[in-house]
Structure formats: C-alpha cells, structure tokens
Amino acid sequence: MERSEKNAGQNSVIFALIYGATYIPATWLLKHQMVDRPLSIIIAIVPIITFSVFILKMIRAFSVMDEVKQRVQLEAVVIGFSLTAMLVMLLFLLELCGISNRGWFGYGHLVGYCWAFYFVGWFVSKKKYGV
C-alpha cells in the first residue's frame, strides 16, 4: 500500500510539472500575441488538457492515501476554495466601487492565488493533524 501511495503521489507531481510546463509558455505566447488566432486557440486548450490529466492523477493519489492524509487534502481544498471565493467577491465589490487593479487581480492572476490559497490550507491542515 505504501508503494502505490508513493507512486500515485509522484505521478501527480510529474503531471503538475507538465501542467506548469504547458501553462507558463502558453500564457507568455498568448500574452505577447506571437501566433495567429487558430494556433492560439490550440495553445490555449493544451494547458486545460494537461490540467485535467493532473487533476485525475491527483484524485487517484487521494484514493490511496490513508484517512488522515485524505482529510488534510480535503481541508486544504476547502480552505483554498473558501479564500478564493472571498477574493472573487471582494474583487467584484471593489469593481462596483470603481476600485480595481487588473494588473494585480486579473483572471490570469487568480490561478496563482488559487494555488497559494490551497497551500495555505494545506499547511494549516497539516499542522492541525500533525502529519
């Protein structure tokens, strides 16, 4: 059981790196409009596919974890989602007030904030359960 948990965890890390290796260049290429429109659509879809595979591998990794590690991951996702929802609500309300800075809080930045919030939840939950 320990071996399969380690393999599943390594697979999810590998696919997370593959996702990052497709997302970052795609963002750069699309931001600087280096390619024509039909190719840009394909470039925009590739990170979504790699992220989907990463999520599937992550879910498989969760299924072989023990109950405490599953609880840590679940709490990390819940905390991350809650913080992301609060940030989106705050940004919406600030936009209604006419106070908005898309340079710091654009759609592209929300991905980074989601990951940061997940890791905040992960650290809090790991400390809570002593894992």
Rank of each mutant, 00 (worst) to 15 (best):
E5Y: 08
E67A: 15
I43W: 11
Q73I: 07
L90A: 15
I42W: 03
I49H: 04
H32D: 09
V53L: 12
F117C: 08
S4V: 10
Y107W: 10
W115P: 00
V72H: 07
W122E: 07
G106M: 03
D66T: 07
E67I: 10
L90Y: 03
I49T: 03
Y107G: 14
A61N: 12
K6A: 05
G121Y: 04
K69H: 15
F62W: 12
Q33Y: 05
Q70D: 01
E2A: 06
G106A: 14
I59P: 04
A44H: 10
L56M: 11
H32S: 11
L91S: 10
C97R: 10
F92M: 04
L94I: 02
V46G: 05
A61D: 08
Q10F: 14
P38H: 09
V111C: 00
K126V: 03
G9M: 01
L39N: 06
P38Q: 12
Y113V: 04
M58F: 13
V131H: 01
Q10D: 00
P47D: 06
S52E: 00
K128R: 15
G108E: 01
R102E: 11
L90E: 05
R37A: 13
M1A: 14
V88W: 11
V78W: 02
N11E: 10
I14Q: 06
F81P: 00
Y23V: 06
V13A: 13
A26K: 06
F117N: 05
L17W: 09
A26W: 01
L30A: 06
M89D: 11
G98P: 02
V124L: 15
P25M: 02
H32T: 10
L94N: 12
I42H: 04
I59S: 07
R3K: 08
G130K: 13
F123N: 14
E75T: 05
W104D: 01
V64T: 15
